[in-house]
Design a binder for these strands. Structure first.
Length: 176
DNA sequence: CGCGTTTGACCCGCGC
DNA sequence: GCGCGGGTCAAACGCG
């Protein structure tokens, strides 16, 4: 059960082939956007049961760094811009993949089409407001969708092994 | 006692 | 305008 073979369906799909550069971009941003591609920095994790990992949608939305405070500042209508968000599916028995960073859960919501709740996590590192949400699919409960938002402004928290595997695999999509 | 999770309330955007 | 769905807050609680 602990085989970490991963394959990326996107590589065989012509229409999505152009996703590849984006996904790399995505991971660069994880590390605080050094354009040197420090994917190897992202070594981490004890996602012991991860089998497959698919980049789902490196959607690039811009977002305001924070949502506006409820009733505080009043009507400061900043354009609501979304941060970059990257989602990928992981076949895993555990909901939260340990990617080496330290996350604190701050919410959980039931989502419409899923019978499983979505969990919201925030990076506990001071000044680093990276968020991620984890959600298990209804149609295939062995698949966990993890969505990252923002980029870490600090080095990885703890060393791990499995995710390094994953990252190494993703390396092949680097445009250069 | 400090830190993380749980959980209900609240807010906001959007579609009807 | 209203209801719904998604996202966040924060108090209470649990655990090491």
């Amino acid at each position: 059960m602990e085989n970490y073979q991963m394959f990326f369906p996107i590589s065989s799909s012509p229409s999505e082939a152009n996703m590849a550069p984006n996904s790399c971009q995505a991971f660069n941003s994880f590390h605080g956007d050094s354009s040197n591609g420090l994917l190897l920095d992202w070594k981490s994790s004890s996602s012991r049961n991860a089998e497959n990992c698919f980049i789902q949608k490196p959607e690039v939305e811009e977002t305001d760094n924070q949502m506006m405070k409820p009733s505080s500042v009043g009507k400061q209508k900043e354009k609501k811009i979304r941060k970059q968000r990257y989602a990928f599916e992981t076949r895993s028995q555990v909901d939260v993949l340990d990617d080496g960073y330290h996350w604190r859960k701050y919410g959980q919501k039931a989502v419409k089409d899923n019978k499983f709740p979505r969990s919201y996590y925030r990076c506990t590192h001071q000044g680093c407001n990276v968020k991620k949400q984890v959600q298990r699919l209804t149609k295939d409960e062995s698949v966990v969708v993890t969505t990252y938002e923002g980029m870490h402004t600090h080095p990885i928290h703890k060393p791990t092994d499995n995710f390094e595997h994953i990252l190494n695999q993703m390396h092949i999509y680097k445009p250069f």
